[in-house]
Simulated assay, not measured.
Amino acid sequence: MTSVTSLFDPVEADLAILVDNLKDLVRAQHPVLFAAAEHLFQAGGKRMRPAIVLLLSRALLPDQDLTPRHRRLAEITEMIHTASLLHDDVVDDSGVRRGVPSVHSLFGNRIAIQAGDFLFAQASWYLANLDNLEVVKLLSEVIKDFAEGEIQQGINCFDTSLTLEAYLEKSYYKTASLMANSAKAAGVLSGTSLQVNQDLYAYGRCVGLAFQIVDDILDFTGSTNALGKPACSDLRSGNLTAPVLFAIAEKPYLKVLIDRHLEEEEDLDEAIALVNDSQGIPKSRALAEQFAHQAVHHLDFLPASDSRQALIDLTEYILKRLY
């Protein structure tokens, strides 16, 4: 399978600059907050969100170099994403992130939350300095959506009446909003038309939803080592995802187990077995494929280029993570 590193070859040099700049953007602040944020930056990750911004920017401006504002948008996107991970790990009590100890397990909940708040604030500051009100509105919406997604996830914990539509809405808030709005922001900074900006937004939204659904499938099918976090952690914590929601309709006893919060000793193992014995995972895979194919359609307007091809290949990479 094509690695995500080689997938981003057209912006490899841009991503290297981004990583160096991210460290500079937070270096001058409190050393403990910097250490907490840098720990997560150094843990790596796929850099998918800034890569999408950079690839779209190069695809939209094929005969020009990236402007400092395009680069800064990519950096802001990664800062917002990293801030959300810091908060997520506290809320989910995750001990591992990207295969290394999570920030809150090393520094404590208070520092992890403060580091996340600090990164959100830094991102907002650099966002304001782009001097583009539409881009400010787009990325500010993302920060609001993160909070909305966390609230929805908390309210719907172990709620077997959760609909697929509500699951997709929460997935948009927590994952796809950043990809959709930062993609659209790349278009705004490039001076593209309203229709193009709508296609960019739709591409990011569809990629984000496909990515989240695949992640939710891998929570059942991937190993702890491959995931960088404990397997089946979502179900264990009551976060009901697409495979579970599809399975509940087919396996009534799964609803019984979840309604009692998997409290009995064998409940979690039974629930996992029921999901695996249902059409929950195949139906979730088909849903992810649907969003991935829609994403490609929204790139039809772009002229042929290495960056455009990488954006198309990204949708295939997301789906191939399942195999």
Rank of each mutant, 00 (worst) to 15 (best):
L25P: 02
A273G: 14
I217E: 10
H298S: 09
H104A: 00
A74C: 08
L85W: 04
G154L: 14
A185H: 04
P282S: 05
V4R: 09
A28V: 12
S3G: 13
K170Q: 09
G108S: 07
A202S: 11
K229Q: 10
G280N: 11
V4W: 03
E12D: 13
T82D: 00
K23E: 15
L254T: 12
L56T: 04
A286E: 15
K170I: 02
S190P: 03
K255H: 06
A210K: 01
F120G: 04
R97V: 02
A123C: 10
A249F: 04
C157Y: 06
T315W: 02
D199V: 01
A83V: 11
T5L: 06
N181P: 02
D259S: 14
D267M: 06
R58H: 03
L319W: 01
I217N: 04
K144A: 07
A115K: 08
Q195R: 12
G154C: 12
V100I: 09
F246W: 11
T221S: 10
N197S: 08
S284D: 09
A123F: 05
E169L: 13
D93L: 12
V53H: 00
N197I: 06
D267N: 00
A304E: 14
G95N: 12
A28F: 10
Y172H: 14
E263Y: 07
V4T: 13
F34H: 12
L164I: 13
A51E: 12
F8T: 13
E141Q: 14
I312K: 10
I213F: 07
A226E: 13
V136M: 10
E266R: 11
A310Q: 01
L245S: 10
L189I: 13
A183L: 00
D89G: 11
Y201T: 05
E38V: 13
E38T: 11
R69Y: 10
P252T: 14
L130Y: 02
Y323G: 14
L25V: 03
I113P: 08
L22V: 08
Y201K: 04
T82V: 14
V135Q: 02
I272R: 06
P230F: 12
T241A: 00
G204E: 00
R98K: 10
A83I: 08
F211Q: 00
L22T: 10
S284P: 06
R110W: 05
G187W: 02
Y172P: 01
Q309N: 15
E264P: 04
F220A: 03
I258D: 02
K251D: 04
Q64W: 06
N132M: 04
L189T: 11
D131E: 14
L209G: 01
H104I: 02
K144F: 02
D269A: 15
D216M: 06
T221N: 04
V26Q: 02
L73Y: 08
N225S: 11
D92N: 03
A288E: 01
A304Q: 13
N239T: 14
L86F: 03
G149S: 10
R58K: 15
